[in-house]
Design a protein around this nucleic acid. Structure first.
Lengths: 142, 142
DNA sequence: TTTGAACCTCTAGCAGGTAGAGGGTGTACA
DNA sequence: TGTACACCCTCTACCTGCTAGAGGTTCAAA
């Protein structure tokens, strides 16, 4: 039987985060000692490892919830899991494209910096003048 | 004199967001009509455009606060603004590298999906088994 | 003058946690 | 058996960067 702290160490998760996952129903309510402390078994360790790995791949908690539901039911067809993963891949590719555009603009800004005073700083100037901006950024999220 | 709605349209900012920027001290308290409605001039329009453009380049509100302080003082040396921009560029390059690694792993997952049942789904299997994971993801942020 | 779009404040909510207060538990060691 | 102290508990509030809605007021065109 594992304490919450041990579980946290084994999976690289903060104790508070494990309790948070329990609160939102992603982790089950574990058994308790007489004194009320949580004790976990292997099933919970596996489940938490699954969650953490999925988070590291950028899946949202909602997507992970779906994936966990799927993996609880071995007879459901695989394409649902596959399509969640594809969706995730697409999101990541979109984010990368966006970051690529930002990188180009920032590089240009930095390259053109004169090293003088802020009054003729290229960085500030570029930020002030949106019309020089080549990229169209619809939304701001990372 | 511009209403808050007009300012919002000109800069692509929601009205609530402008009020939020005022609340956190990023935008100044503007003049008001007798009835209490906000009215803006050109200085505020420029300032908001600066903020929005910086946000679109991924700068945090704190970084923008620094940049605005710098640009308010034309005699300060430029290298502070330059280093904020370089920091931002670095962050973006780190994020891109991270996303690149995730993309590789997700692509592998999706490619290997059998199309059968979840019981032998490659996607779920990979998520369950962290040891197959080639990348080391320190933190999860986007 | 009337209509109705746009404005006002205030509070609460989103993701995905993190931090701290104030107190209880479990166990190793003497 | 006592005691130290690391770890656990709940609860609440905070973080970023907004967004939504309730309930009410103002402005400007027709």
């Amino acid at each position: 039987m594992l304490t919450i702290g041990t579980l946290g160490k084994k999976t690289g998760t903060k104790v508070q985060t494990i309790r948070y996952y329990e609160q939102i129903g992603l982790m089950p309510e574990p058994g308790r000692t007489e004194g009320g402390q949580r004790r976990y078994g292997h099933a919970e360790l596996d489940r938490l490892a699954f969650i953490r790995h999925s988070r590291q791949l950028g899946f949202s908690l909602e997507a992970i919830r779906e994936l966990l539901d799927l993996s609880d039911d071995p007879d459901r067809p695989c394409h649902e899991a596959d399509s969640i993963a594809r969706r995730q891949l697409k999101q990541i590719e979109q984010r990368m494209a966006r970051l690529e555009a930002l990188r180009t603009e920032l590089k240009r800004m930095v390259r053109e910096c004169s090293g003088g005073n802020t009054s003729d700083c290229r960085v500030l100037e570029v930020l002030r003048d949106h019309s020089e901006c080549l990229t169209d950024h619809e939304d701001i999220g990372a």
